[in-house]
Simulated scan of single mutants.
Amino acid sequence: MDAAVIVFPGSNCDRDIKVALAQSMGKEPHMVWHRDADFPKVDLIVLPGGFSYGDYLRCGAMAAHSPAMREVVARAGKGTRVLAICNGFQIATEAGLLPGALMRNAHLQYVCSDVNLRIETNQTEFMAKYRPGQVVRIPVGHADGNYQADEATLDRLEGEGLVALRYCDPNGTISSAANPNGAARNIAGVYNDERNVLGLMPHPERLSDAALGGTDGRLMIDSLVEALS
């Protein structure tokens, strides 16, 4: 399996996901600067967390129009898998890879903490090593993670099994108290229609090694490596 991490000015989790990918793949991914649309053919593209372009204008809005992103959109349309984490999720929605938008957190404060997440489906290459309904612990760190979409879109995502993760309590119960940012229906991550693009606000790379306090996030990366190798 070959992977590429797109690096934007303001990315700050690119090295984290590079280390996590190398740990699972046994080799390092390509690190692709945002101006470089001519990067090697890969099985997986990762849009990392951070603050691309300093979050000016709107989170992810400027990065979505970079040369590398135009290539990412083209490759995703042909089936290449894309994992969009935190700021990467924001970029993916701005680029039209995923429905909906990421708004300012409902409490208007930055949130940085571990959260509990319920796996809604494992019928994708991203989640094969999890169990449906399994509760995992993965950190978040964002000011604009409040996922919103119109009711028709939310109903469609629910009905077609495109909701990947939801914020929950340790028992898997979905509640407003377990929602760190006000996201509609406690949604923490969604797929595109073809299920080859996953956007999520939690950072699996931040909990991918026992030395970091847990390995719940590594299962996502291992799922992809096993499926695409």
Score class of each variant (00 low, 15 high):
A68Y: 03
A68M: 05
A64F: 10
L44Y: 01
G54P: 11
V46A: 08
M69V: 13
A68L: 02
G50T: 04
G54R: 13
G54A: 12
V42I: 08
A64L: 12
P48V: 03
P48Q: 02
G60K: 00
G49I: 03
C59R: 06
L44A: 06
G60Y: 01
P48L: 03
H65A: 15
L44V: 10
L57E: 14
L57D: 13
V42W: 03
Y53N: 08
M69C: 12
H65Y: 15
M62A: 14
P40S: 01
G49F: 03
R58G: 06
P40K: 02
V46P: 03
V73G: 06
A61H: 10
M69T: 08
L57N: 12
L47Q: 07
M62P: 10
H65S: 15
L44S: 05
V73W: 05
H65W: 13
A63K: 05
G50W: 01
L57K: 14
G50E: 04
P40M: 00
G60N: 05
G60C: 03
R58Y: 11
H65R: 15
G60L: 00
F51L: 05
P48F: 04
M62Q: 14
A68S: 06
L47F: 00
A64D: 08
K41C: 11
G49W: 02
L57F: 15
G54T: 12
R70E: 14
H65D: 15
M62G: 10
S52Y: 08
A68G: 00
G50M: 05
A61R: 10
Y56K: 15
Y56F: 15
V46F: 08
V46W: 01
L47T: 01
G60I: 00
H65N: 15
